[in-house]
Design a binder for these strands. Structure first.
Length: 805
RNA sequence: GGGCGAGUGGCGUAACGGCAGCCGCGGCGGCUUUAGGAGCCGUUGCUCGAGAGAGCGUGAGGGUUCAAGUCCCUCCUCGCCCACCA
């Protein structure tokens, strides 16, 4: 019934392996995907997250890049000059671990992987402008990490401080957060502990409030909420209570509930709080020291488990609750965190779950000061954390607690013991890493001049090649005298280099600016070209990056803006996230050994089929479980398209109105779906069109095929290019304009109207579209089935919905 | 514990408040080629029925509505993020 035979009478099979490499080579040699900075059409910057060069392009990469490539091609066909660059986030722990495990230099390992992945991207048929490739481990790139570090330092946005960091006792090294899996070292499964180290930080907290705002950004609600939760803004007050017998030692605490201050019956310090050693009574010293030592030795997961019973020790010291005038004991307990607020709390057991549990455990007094019904209650079975009326609160008794929050805070300010305050959960960004494969921090420590920044004109501080990778004993750079020993830029005397490197999230926080001009050596970005493209029009990235990377990008943008280098507030105006692709319900990762390589599928079915399949699996934003079964369906679809495409054109003849309408409807559907990243339903619509076309004949079928080839081009670039050419199209199908549709022509002439009685479908009636309501009603009531259903009943109401009901 | 999202055939999924299950996978039946890991057609939610057809069906239970997978309330389950954050 189909005419998939050529003039010679022999069927030509769809053979992806014959056409895909051919077109890939052709596109590369003709520079089809090279994007000029000044094209004939408006610029559009489509960014998709660059990969870590970990080895193979795996299923997760296909799931990220095939739809992104499709969306970028779609926008290009819509008449935009689309920049779609690619690069490699090339520094990082994996390369260093590979060096340790395989006795291979991280640079060599990285180069090998990048070469392989470039080939695989090529085989995917991605429309990448490779002239703009960015590789973060090259000095031409990372020198700008160093430059930014110096700029942030000048501005006071980078600083050095001692902080507790994740430390693996077995590997004797600091771990990045992402290397800590359920509190354990990713490599050796050892429990990670906190260790105090002097480290470099970026002051992201300065931007906490601005980072909470997403004005004018088209970002998914989910990501905005996750970032807001991460930043965790709390309003309240900072107040201090004096310590009995220590004229100079007051304990300052943060609270979100100043209204409950009359109920503060004790205080709690974090075990690490500096005042612990000062105020502890001699009698309690032994117990306190033991508790502090135990807390320090415990792992993060042990300490932060919310389920375990609360423990603590009395310091034997007392503070004065300035408001109630009561003398209250000071305890230490590890449920108070040294790193949040001031590391100390006023404990109000009557109105806080944790304080209540602690007070119950140690028999401390519980005093109700906020009451839902305004009356006082002798005992509380549970803490009351809601709003109410303040009771037993001196002059404030009878005040609504919501009002009391503000009055108490301003009263504290008036008496000089506190003030209204805001605290964030967000911490400053620790950027130091005791790692080799990263950007050297451009700092020199001089016995005379102290901490000296490396002058700008001496950048880059090049990462030396000749380091030893043992996996033990800290940073390899620290063991390299030729690197460590240097001269002080200020006095010229002997000095030592900083041997830590920067977190690789620093590298990826600004790479979108570098794509615009990868060679410029006078600035991190070519501002002139930047004006033509920035900010980024569209960014696609996995939902797993919702917080860290995307927050850092925003912070660095704002910091560079305040330094005078950028002219916009947000780097990315429109963001969309693909869901996570898993295998048998588990995330794919090298350490689990369950990474799925699609190469076998590409070999068997072709890249176009694999592209289509990853987009057809389900909604892109939701992710999915990878299961190669089912790929046959998309393969069959392309075989159908192929045979349609090779059909000889029909002689002039009558048109097929149904098929013409289907074409219009499909264009509409695919257009709207691509705008919304609904790749799966767009493909379903094209499948329907192909089936309809195969069952039709004549000029309408040819037109449907022509339309299908263009609509399918962003999804399956090779087969459509081949068919475009064979059907006599000029130039590349990827340079064609996206087809327009006529909404009126997409509408059906006849509609199936449903007749319901009591909400149940009783009949279906074919009627011309646009039949008037009265006529519709007449036809429906005349239907024998409807008559039967309403026999013997009285009609209370008739509801008519045009073209539907 | 908090926040967000999701529960629909054997499976992946689809449905402006208006015919639940589009499009695929898998299954079943057939055709073609039997040189292909090729192609084509039909059928496929469940139950009853030979059939026409009828009844039941979107995690559970309520509600709003002429009409609910969709909106509202309560609950259950799963996923993700945060979590002793004062």
């Amino acid at each position: 019934m189909t005419s998939e035979t050529t003039a010679s009478g022999k069927t030509e099979r769809y053979t992806p392996s014959a056409i895909e490499p051919k077109w890939q080579a052709h596109w590369a040699s003709t520079g089809l995907y090279e994007t000029p900075d000044d094209g004939d059409q408006p610029n559009f910057y489509f960014l998709t997250a660059f990969p870590y060069p970990s080895g193979d392009v795996h299923v997760g990469h296909w799931y990220a890049y095939a739809p992104a490539d499709c969306a970028a091609r779609f926008i290009r066909m819509h008449g935009r000059n689309v920049l779609f660059p690619m690069g490699f986030d090339a520094f990082g722990i994996n390369a260093e671990n590979a060096a340790i495990d395989r006795k291979m230099h991280p640079a060599a390992w990285t180069e090998k992987n990048m070469a392989q992945m470039r080939e695989q991207f090529l085989a995917m048929g991605a429309a990448i402008d490779w002239r703009r490739e960015v590789i973060t481990c090259y000095p031409e790139y990372y020198r700008w990490n160093q430059w930014m570090f110096l700029k942030l330092l000048e501005k006071g946005l980078a600083y050095r401080a001692t902080a507790p960091v994740n430390w693996c006792p077995r590997d004797e090294t600091v771990l990045a957060n992402e290397q800590v899996i359920n509190g354990r070292c990713e490599r050796c499964d050892t429990l990670v502990v906190k260790k105090d180290l002097t480290q470099w930080f970026y002051k992201i907290t300065d931007y906490a409030d601005e980072l909470l705002r997403f004005d004018g950004l088209d970002w998914p609600e989910r990501v905005r909420v996750m970032q807001q939760n991460w930043i965790g803004r709390s309003e309240g007050a900072e107040i201090q209570f004096p310590v009995e017998g220590h004229r100079d030692a007051a304990i300052r605490f943060f609270t979100t509930r100043p209204d409950t201050i009359y109920g503060a019956t004790f205080m709690v310090l974090a075990p690490e709080h500096p005042l612990v050693a000062v105020i502890t009574a001699p009698m309690q010293k032994a117990a306190v020291d033991a508790y502090v030592a135990k807390a320090r030795s415990e792992s993060e997961i042990e300490r932060t488990s919310a389920e375990r019973p609360k423990t603590g020790v009395d310091t034997g010291a007392f503070a004065t609750n300035v408001f109630s005038g009561e003398r209250i004991p000071i305890w230490i307990a590890d449920y108070v965190l040294a790193t949040y607020g001031t590391g100390a709390i006023m404990a109000v057991p009557a109105h806080d779950e944790r304080d209540f549990a602690f007070a119950t455990q140690y028999g401390l007094p519980i005093k109700e000061v906020v009451s839902a019904d305004g009356a006082s209650h002798a005992t509380l079975g549970a803490p009351y954390t809601g709003p109410g009326t303040m009771v037993r609160s001196g002059p404030y008794s009878g005040t609504a607690s919501e009002i009391g929050k503000r009055t108490i805070a301003s009263e504290a300010k008036k008496t000089g013991i506190g003030e209204p305050s805001v605290t964030y959960r967000l911490r400053d960004w620790l950027v130091s890493r005791q790692r080799y494969w990263g950007t050297p921090i451009p700092i020199v420590y001089c016995p005379t001049d102290g901490t000296v920044p490396v002058p700008e004109n001496q950048l880059p501080v090049v990462l030396p090649r000749d380091a030893q990778f043992t996996g033990r004993g800290g940073s390899p750079l620290a063991q390299l005298p030729s690197f460590v020993n240097t001269t002080c830029p200020k006095c010229g005397g002997p000095a030592k280099r900083e041997t830590d490197t920067l977190d690789t999230f620093v590298d990826s926080s600004w790479y979108m600016y570098r794509y615009l001009d990868t060679r410029i050596d006078t600035a991190f970005m070519n501002a002139e070209i930047g004006k033509k493209w920035l900010p980024v029009d569209r960014y696609t990235i996995g939902i797993e990056h919702a917080i860290l990377h995307l927050l850092y990008c925003r912070f660095v943008c704002k910091a560079l803006r305040d330094l005078g280098y950028l002219w916009f507030d947000e780097p990315i105006t429109h963001l969309r996230n693909q869901g996570t692709i898993v295998f048998k319900g588990r995330k794919m990762s090298k350490s689990r050994g369950n990474v799925q390589a699609p190469d076998e599928y590409v070999r068997r079915y072709g890249a176009d089929t694999v592209r289509l399949f990853v987009m057809f699996m389900g909604p892109w934003t939701e992710g999915n479980d990878w299961d190669g079964a089912g790929i046959e369906g998309t393969s069959r679809f392309l075989h159908r398209v192929w045979s349609l495409g090779l059909s000889e054109r029909a002689a002039p003849g009558p048109r097929d109105a149904d098929l013409d309408r289907t074409v219009q409807r499909t264009i509409k559907k695919v257009t709207e779906d691509l705008e919304a990243y609904h790749f799966n339903t767009a493909i379903a619509a094209m499948m329907e069109l192909s089936t309809a076309a195969l069952h039709a004949s004549g000029p309408s079928r040819d037109d449907a095929t022509d339309a299908l080839v263009v609509l399918l081009a962003p999804f399956a670039p090779h087969i459509t290019e081949e068919l475009w050419q064979r059907r006599g199209g000029a130039g590349s199908v990827h340079r064609q304009s996206w087809p327009a549709y006529d909404a009126a022509a997409a509408r059906d002439e006849t509609v199936t109207v449903v007749a319901q009685v009591d909400g149940k479908v009783r009949d279906r009636i074919e009627l011309p579209a646009g039949t008037g309501e009265d006529a519709l009603k007449q036809v429906a009531l005349a239907s024998p089935k409807v008559k039967q259903a309403i026999a013997g009943k009285s009609i209370a109401r008739v509801i008519v919905v045009a073209d539907r009901l």
